[in-house]
């Protein structure tokens, strides 16, 4: 029997095998990008209902970043928001018949974890400098250096495995129940998967915020409702 966790290439682009998570991710990227373009083309100072929802989403993410990191959310808004949106949409893609969520495969979750890991190091060095960032590994004592390095790796690994385990298990359960019970029986489990997918997307985004916040340290005192639009450095 074939291992269900093993990816089979759909086609090859030269030497590069293209698997289903990559294709589905491209589709999700296209949908998110086109949706963003459509939703933001008519923004005005007098918002419509759609614009109000968009602004509520963005301000909620900014508030979450501000409360977690105690910093202005501008530089981190796009990364955290994109991770949340992508994980959420990827988890919910299981509702489409025949589509398997990309996050149900370890490579996608690992890619997200790698991006968060790189962003943590990038923002830490950008904020503290290379020497200052490396010095954080010796806190509170140089004895902690090995443990801190291991923590960096393991928490990234846990980030990956947590998302993978939750989504993959949901997909497997629904598949097993569907094969055993019938067409409409897995619906409650799929609804549960929706909730689980939302919670996992939130947890992933919040943990990414916490890791980046720990890397950059406490910020200066900020205005309570300042939402300055700063450029987002890419990780």
């Amino acid at each position: 029997m074939e291992n269900p966790l093993t990816l089979q290439p759909l086609f090859h682009l030269g030497p590069v095998p293209i698997t289903s998570p990559v294709v589905i991710s491209w589709a999700l990227i296209a949908i998110l990008t086109l949706g963003s373009i459509l939703l933001t083309r008519n923004l005005s100072l007098t918002p419509s209902k759609t614009q109000t929802v968009l602004e509520l989403f963005v301000t909620t993410i900014e508030a979450q970043i501000r409360d977690t990191m105690n910093r202005e959310p501008g530089p981190y808004r796009a990364l955290i928001g994109t991770i949340f949106l992508f994980v959420l949409v990827a988890n919910w893609s299981s509702l489409v018949p025949g589509i398997e969520p990309p996050t149900a495969h370890l490579e996608t979750d690992a890619a997200l974890a790698v991006v968060v890991f790189a962003a943590t190091i990038s923002f830490g060095i950008a904020q503290r400098g290379l020497k200052g960032y490396l010095a954080t590994f010796a806190e509170p004592s140089w004895v902690m250096i090995p443990l801190n390095i291991i923590e960096q790796i393991t928490r990234t690994f846990s980030l990956m495995v947590r998302l993978f385990g939750n989504v993959m298990s949901g997909v497997f359960v629904v598949g097993i129940v569907l094969s055993l019970a019938g067409l409409f029986v897995p619906i409650p489990l799929m609804a549960l998967d929706l909730l689980t997918g939302t919670v996992q997307a939130y947890i992933f985004a919040v943990l990414a915020t916490v890791f980046i916040g720990a890397a950059v340290g406490d910020g200066p005192a900020r205005a309570p409702s300042d939402t300055s639009d700063k450029e987002t450095p890419q990780p």
């Binding site: 990008t33 373009i37 933001t40 968009l54 796009a78 994109t82 949106l85 639009d229 987002t232």
Partner: peptide
């Protein structure tokens, strides 16, 4: 892409 077409315009 989302920074370019979603978060930056809304912000």
């Amino acid at each position: 892409l989302l920074a370019r077409f979603l978060f930056r315009p809304v912000s």
